[in-house]
């Protein structure tokens, strides 16, 4: 069994042709890991180091908590065309495409609403608070939102410039980790079968060697966390291509003015979604799509969220409700799904 946690680089298996190399690190305030199976150890070290650099670049460019990030610069210049980096451009185009495909249920322009809910600093610095300060007479003044401001963002692909509508600010937190996992997996796939874990959003390419997979059960074994017991897995699936992501209100929640808040804003109300879903896990052709869809399912709630998954091709999912009930799409079995 390959160690689930490796500090830097590890090699698994007695057969060097089937070696699996791993690197773990922190970025975007999350635990990150990448595995690649290749006999070329030197190439593996270089490839995994490139993954770490990519994650660091994504954080440096897209973090809303860094005043020197590219995102902060673009947000500070709403109303003016701003030339952006290729990375920023790609993530923004992907985000706007996701907004279009989800009919606005994913919205990259919800930063004002997120801050209004009290999510103003990186989560590890956020005071979770209590209900004690609750005063029903003092409620947040939720911002008035124009109708889907993301539709008014202007992109100039020739000059690679972005023009935000006035008083509009971007938050790419709902897509950045999935995009980073996907991009890293694309990079590592040139070396061999690989798996990238960006804070729980995962992208895989290729069948792993026997060091990590059982015969006849191709795929990288992925646990689905139990939100009621965060250190345990509720189920297992085998992923050999595409991505899987989990979104939920189980961890990132806090009290703001005595009212419980979380980070998944419903674009229809501009407020934290009122939902019966605790976590939603989605498998999709890419980790980016899985990331976005998982958040959408939580926002929609269990019934509408499950209907959404069933109506979408090449997508499977598992929902854990706040009352403990679990719903799955039938195609999950194709991924070697089983309960733990």
């Amino acid at each position: 069994m390959f160690p689930a946690s490796c500090d830097w680089l590890s090699v698994s298996g007695s057969d060097p042709d089937n070696a699996v190399h791993c690197q773990t690190f922190r970025a975007m305030n999350c635990a990150m890991a990448a595995w690649v199976a290749t006999p070329d150890r030197v190439a593996a070290i270089a490839g995994l180091e490139r993954v770490r650099e990519l994650m660091a670049e994504v954080e440096a460019r897209l973090s809303r908590f860094r005043p020197d990030s590219e995102l902060a610069y673009v947000n500070a210049h709403a109303g003016q065309p701003v030339r952006v980096s290729p990375l920023f451009w790609e993530v923004l185009v992907e985000a706007l495409t996701a907004a279009e495909m989800s009919e606005g249920l994913y919205d990259p322009t919800l930063l004002d609403a997120l801050e209004m809910a009290g999510y103003t600093v990186s989560f590890e610095h956020l005071s979770v608070g209590t209900r004690s300060g609750r005063n029903p007479m003092v409620r947040p003044l939720w911002p008035r939102r124009s109708r889907q401001p993301w539709r008014q963002i202007e992109l100039n692909p020739i000059a690679r410039t972005v023009t935000l509508p006035p008083h509009t600010r971007l938050d790419l937190g709902g897509i950045a980790k999935g995009w980073a996992a996907e991009r890293a997996a694309q990079h590592l796939a040139a070396l061999g079968p690989c798996l990238v874990d960006a804070g729980g959003d995962l992208a895989a390419r290729g069948t792993p060697p026997p060091a990590v997979a059982a015969p006849g059960q191709p795929g990288w074994p992925i646990g689905i966390a139990d939100p009621f017991h965060p250190d345990r897995d509720r189920a297992l699936l085998l992923l050999h291509r595409g991505g899987v992501a989990t979104s939920g209100v189980d961890h990132r929640h806090w009290y703001h003015r005595g009212i419980r808040q979380h980070h998944l804003i419903d674009p229809r109300t501009g407020r934290p979604a009122v939902t019966d879903v605790l976590t939603a896990t989605v498998i999709a052709p890419t980790a980016t799509q899985a990331d976005v869809l998982a958040s959408i399912v939580v926002i929609l709630g269990a019934r509408a969220g499950l209907r959404r998954l069933l109506a979408t091709s090449k997508v499977e999912g598992l929902l854990i409700r706040k009352d403990g009930r679990i719903e799955t799409t039938p195609g999950l079995m194709a991924y070697g799904f089983r309960w733990l």
């Binding site: 804070g199 995962l202 074994p221 689905i224 896990t281």
Partner: peptide, 11 residues
Amino acid sequence: PQPLARTRSSR
């Protein structure tokens, strides 16, 4: 196989 990685909400 035991899980190699875990999908969960961001933390």
